[in-house]
Nucleic acid binder design. Structure first.
Lengths: 224, 224
DNA sequence: TGTCAAGCACTAGTATACAAGTACGCTGTA
DNA sequence: TACAGCGTACTTGTATACTAGTGCTTGACA
């Protein structure tokens, strides 16, 4: 398990959760491997309590499995869950972007444009981590300006299934197309063209397609 | 706080969660009231641990607020969150019913029909609790037959905001219209008419409209 | 050698003890 | 009387101790 520093105001539970998610997404905790509350606790210099609370939360979205009195494990990759994550994201993102066309004011459009401008900047300056962060931020922003933060948070919790296989397939999607997609989406919102925006979003999200069969062959031991 | 019996195989955490949800929905724990882990523990004959775990889970969907080192409280009614719950439900249910038209086989349609038949039966026999349960089951079934159980579960977690104000407005919506809606939806699925099914679902969900202003007047002290 | 049973080592679930931080009231002083 | 400051009684966060249940291992016996 790869550990990074604990933030100053972060509680033990939040820290444990962050570490576990990171390590699961990047396969440092490999799918199917057993997790011991005791081991994790001592590794992270915490007691069982905060670690356990983090594991419970992760088990809610089935990325961690808890077998009472037996043990816990990182869930194997269940492609059905990956598809659920993709489905949920597609449906909600499209609905939100359509809604944004109806409700977004000048201020909101400006925020979106600012984000896209920064994406262009960091593309030139080759900073993929920052680009990834801005990409996430862009989508989060769409939910925020339409007042759907809680919906985003719930959707985000299941996205971990998708994030994990995305990290396996080594996609560094952050390219020109992605950014021009974002640009077009903001334009559609500014023009209040709901149909167009929805269409663009659908196309945009389809870029994240992953070759399931290839992954399944290469990492068959990670799959359910 | 109104308590019911603990199921045999239920863990303490599950029991605490069930009790808290029930009491919050039915306003036995009134919006804005403080919650003490200690009090709740002794009331439910549990220790703080399982109660605390339940509270943490409820705080994830903002129905309970935890102020570190200060206390916890039942969240006041934030109509924005209610709207988020309604939005999420509308969007996902429509998408799912549309999907069901593409994928549902004979077996699935039969399950749906069986459910509707039971609804008709319990309508005649005047058993509103059972009708409510069948209604929930009907919608859950749509997610199940399309393989979106996890999506349902996440959506369901935020629905508590809606359930709470629904219980305030004393809606016993379980009438003929509801059931005939269900019937029509199943027919559309059987006929694989996605557009129609979506339309019907939208109309169906719109029946649950709640008069916000009236509630806000009557229970202003419960609102944010 | 094969089989079965007892025990041990592990797990998660729960209870309890302790730490750290907050709010509020009381008391003493000006 | 007003106000400052300390102390107390609460809170949640964390650590640890205990309970109960699982499965594997080991050893005795047929």
């Amino acid at each position: 398990m790869r550990l990074t520093e604990r933030y100053s105001k972060e509680t033990g539970r939040e820290y444990a959760l962050r570490m576990l998610k990171d390590n699961i997404i990047h396969l440092d905790l490999v799918p199917g491997s057993m997790l011991s509350e005791n081991e994790l606790s001592s590794e992270m210099n915490l007691s069982r309590t905060p670690v356990r609370e983090a594991l419970i939360e992760l088990s809610k979205v089935k990325i961690v499995e808890i077998y009472p009195q037996k043990g816990s494990a990182v869930a194997l990759i269940d492609y059905k869950l990956v598809e659920e994550a993709i489905f949920m994201r597609n449906v909600l993102e499209c609905a939100v972007v359509e809604l944004a066309c109806k409700t977004a004011g000048e201020e909101a459009v400006m925020q979106l444009n600012e984000n896209v401008k920064l994406q262009e900047f960091y593309l030139e300056n080759r900073s993929p981590e920052r680009l990834l962060k801005l990409d996430d931020e862009f989508h989060r922003l769409l939910f925020h300006i339409t007042g759907k933060d809680q919906v985003y948070q719930l959707m985000d919790s299941i996205t971990i299934h998708f994030d994990r296989i995305r990290s396996m397939s080594l996609i560094a999607v952050k390219d020109l197309k992605t950014i021009s997609d974002h640009h077009a989406i903001v334009d559609a919102i500014a023009a209040k063209d709901g149909v167009k925006a929805k269409e663009l979003m659908e196309k945009h999200l389809s870029r994240y397609k992953i070759d399931e069969e290839a992954l399944r062959k290469e990492y068959s031991e990670y799959f359910l």
